[in-house]
Design a protein around this nucleic acid. Structure first.
Length: 755
DNA sequence: GGTGTACTCATTTTT
DNA sequence: TGAGTACACC
């Protein structure tokens, strides 16, 4: 396969680059993935061994895709993984040198929170001033900065910082006792190892002669240190990314890493991919205008050769329900014009905004799916099963033990558990070990001691068997614990929990097949670092709803960004201060916009129910920043209640008196188009609303010439007498068949054009 | 030891 | 508004 012929010049330059540091500044939609995969294939075609190439990605999914794509180019055996999975593997390989035991457990966020809570308790702070979330955040930040508990304590100048140091150190003690590492530890330990053992660092540098790091703008300090440690001697480091798409600083990502690459490697080759293959000029122009307000960036000259497309729309509605209705209406219109449902995506800043959208889609029967969902390995039943496996591998994993000591129910309650915990703490042993001791009778009473001992015995028996193949182990756990039966009892034969457990068994079977020599610990480390089973959804036939963060890296022919309001899109916490990082919020908006290929609509609501109370919402300042000649604004009127029949009006009509000024029932699509030249528009039905007609300067509307037959949603059919401007509105005088001559304000009414 | 109810407190999320 | 927690009660 020819790796170069269909590339543009900068792309080719990046692909053909061999030795030495390379920075690829890849604008949105500039073919970055293609460049990376081609470059790897090219390296290999030039004689580099596949196992000497290490490609590091942001997510597991990206890693899998990269392996697949590179394989499709004929290069197999390349290692693509995340920083975390790389480190988890290295810590098993160099367990002794790193000072960890190879059967360590990996604690996920929920585990970490529980540990943090315990640490808070044990640190016995004067008041409950710190929350577990704050503690975790601080500890996580420290670890990313490669600060150990001891380092942290040394730097703690203020009293609250000293408190934090105490909690950090308690937290570490708890993790240590459980033989567990959290996500940040994986990176921290490897970084420490490489610092302490130059020989190992060098060995890794020789092993991975070529290092590629994708999404470099979202790497943190620990990752930076690891990457540069590996590449220290050969400097064959290729970083790809886009500072304008750095949206994870709240997770410790440092945009400086990419901004300073040329400073780190003065001999770096820098390639800019500025041709966008994804979006129409309209979308690109608006996105570019927006992001140009950022100071912290490397200016790019994004351009596209795509032909002109539809304008970008900014829609303002009365409230979130009207907003949702309008998004659904437009989505349906796109589908009516031949687009598929899975070509359409709706993005929002806050998960809580999805509910109204969801309702609107459900009510109208438009298929949709939410891209968040509870991650598979976060489901309760899955975590329960996995906790058994974890405890078998790592008997000191107290969190796993606590989780399942009464699952399925064995009559071991919180009192027993508390006593057990005291007993274990007093002796410095793990919960499981404490449970196994007959002496517990004195502490717990005979009945409880027996229950607890039976549990310990069960786990022991399971752990004594062979630990592979994993599928078999899993099945024996399910059988021996009675979990399967319990699930069946709860959910019925065909219920979700059972199906999920069955899926876990299948996943284990696949793991066994793919990794014939691997055992349970390998499996557990793998699943701990994977958020979801890789079910490749492919074409789902549904509109996709997701957060702006989740949208990174994707593209859709049509994109809606909802909730473009001050406080939501530049997100701001309640206490008004400038807590938000304006530039990062702007990047987030930019990322969302640049996902769109052909159609982009940003919406906002004037009133929105937000955590209980309704508020008047101001427009996002970003809407003004992105505004320009390719951007059209629409304001939808609030729904107006239909007047009840008023007999006393004396009008002898079943409909009651029809007041001319009363706007008709409003359900969807009444436009008040603020077109540039102070002209207004009617939106003839049956036509693409994206091309609503603008009134001429004399007030006439092109599609509503005198004599034209139209249908009004309330007055029925009629004939245009004339059109004209009156103040801010464009009006049409219509002779209705039923009701005679009326004046209609076009902004309030959607007229259907009749043949 | 399990269940009901008052209370609080609100991003983004992959590893 | 609604999810998750703490605590009281049965």
């Amino acid at each position: 396969m020819d790796l170069l012929s269909d590339l543009n010049e900068p792309q080719r330059q990046a692909v053909m680059h061999m030795e030495g540091p390379l920075l690829v500044l890849a604008g949105a939609g500039s073919g970055k993935t293609r460049v990376i995969t081609r470059r790897v294939a090219h390296l290999i075609s030039q004689g580099v061994a596949p196992w000497q190439v290490l490609a590091i990605t942001f997510t597991n999914k990206a890693a899998h895709e990269m392996v697949d794509r590179i394989a499709n180019l004929g290069a197999r055996g390349v290692m693509a993984c995340t920083f975390h999975s790389l480190c988890a593997r290295l810590l098993r390989e160099f367990a002794e040198e790193a000072g960890v035991s190879p059967n360590y457990s990996i604690y996920d966020q929920a585990d970490q929170r529980r540990v943090a809570r315990l640490a808070l308790e044990q640190a016995k702070l004067p008041s409950g001033s710190l929350t577990a979330a704050q503690v975790l955040h601080t500890i996580s930040r420290a670890k990313m900065q490669l600060q150990t508990a001891a380092d942290f304590e040394q730097n703690a100048a203020t009293s609250p910082m000293r408190q934090m140091a105490k909690i950090y150190s308690e937290y570490e003690k708890l993790l240590g006792a459980a033989n567990a590492l959290d996500f940040d530890d994986l990176l921290l330990r490897v970084a420490q190892l490489m610092g302490r053992r130059p020989d190992i660092r060098r060995l890794l540098g020789e092993r991975y002669r070529f290092v590629l790091i994708d999404e470099y703008q979202d790497t943190n300090h620990a990752q930076y240190v690891i990457a540069h440690g590996i590449a220290l001697e050969h400097e064959n480091i290729c970083a790809t990314g886009d500072p304008d798409q750095s949206i994870y600083s709240w997770r410790g990502a440092r945009i400086d890493n990419i901004l300073e690459f040329e400073h780190d490697y003065t001999n770096a080759t820098v390639v800019r991919l500025e041709e966008n293959y994804r979006s129409t000029p309209q979308i690109l122009a608006a996105a570019d205008r927006l992001i140009s307000y950022n100071r912290l960036r490397k200016a790019k000259g994004l351009f596209t050769q795509r032909p002109s497309g539809a304008d970008v729309w900014v829609v303002c509605t009365h409230d979130e329900h009207a907003e949702a209705a309008e998004v659904v209406r437009r989505a349906r219109e796109l589908v009516a014009r031949g687009m598929r449902h899975d070509d359409i995506a709706v993005f929002y800043r806050l998960n809580s905004l999805s509910r109204v959208m969801e309702d609107a889609f459900r009510r109208t029967g438009v298929p949709y799916r939410i891209a968040r969902g509870v991650a598979f390995y976060n489901r309760k039943e899955i975590k329960d099963v996995l906790a058994y496996l974890k405890l078998m591998v790592n008997p000191r994993d107290d969190l796993a033990c606590e989780r399942i000591i009464n699952v399925p129910s064995r009559g071991i309650g919180s009192t027993t558990l508390a006593r057990l915990r005291d007993f274990a703490a007093g002796r410095g042993i793990g919960l499981l070990e404490a449970a196994s001791q007959g002496r517990m009778i004195g502490e717990l009473g005979k009945a409880a001691a027996n229950k607890v001992a039976a549990f310990a015995q069960l786990v022991k028996q399971l752990a004594e068997g062979p630990l592979a193949p994993v599928r078999t182990v899993l099945e024996s756990v399910l059988a021996a614990t009675g979990m399967e039966q319990e699930l069946r009892a709860i959910g019925g034969e065909e219920h979700e929990e059972l199906a999920n457990v069955a899926e876990l068994v299948t996943a284990a079977g696949e793991f066994d097949r793919e990794n014939p020599s691997a055992t349970l610990p390998d499996f557990l480390h793998l699943v701990s670092l994977v958020s979801d089973v890789d079910r490749f959804e492919g074409s789902t036939g549904a509109v996709t709803l997701m957060t702006l963060h989740a949208a990174k890296g994707l593209e859709f022919p049509a994109v809606f960004i909802v909730g473009c309001e001050e406080g939501i899109l530049p997100f701001r916490r309640m206490g008004e201060e400038e807590t938000c990082d304006r530039e990062e919020e702007r990047r987030l908006c930019f990322v969302g916009m640049t996902r769109a290929m052909d159609h982009l609509t940003l919406t906002r609501a004037r009133y929105r129910g937000l955590r209980g109370s309704r508020q008047r919402q101001a427009a996002s300042p970003f809407l003004a920043e992105l505004d320009g000649p390719q951007v059209r604004h629409v304001e939808l009127r609030p729904p107006v209640e239909v007047q009840p029949i008023r007999q006393e009006s004396g009008v002898d009509s079943e409909l009651g008196e029809l007041v001319e000024e009363t706007p008709p029932t409003f359900d969807e699509g009444f436009y008040d188009v603020k077109a540039p030249a102070a002209s207004v528009a009617a939106a003839p039905a049956g036509r693409d609303s994206d091309s609503a007609d603008v009134a001429q300067s004399d007030g006439s509307v092109p599609h509503l010439p005198p004599g034209r037959r139209v249908r009004h949603p309330m007055f029925g059919t009629g004939q245009i007498v004339s059109t004209g401007r009156s103040g801010a509105y464009t009006k049409a005088v219509i002779d209705f068949d039923q009701y005679g001559r009326k004046t209609i304000i076009l902004q309030f009414t959607r007229l259907e054009l009749l043949a």
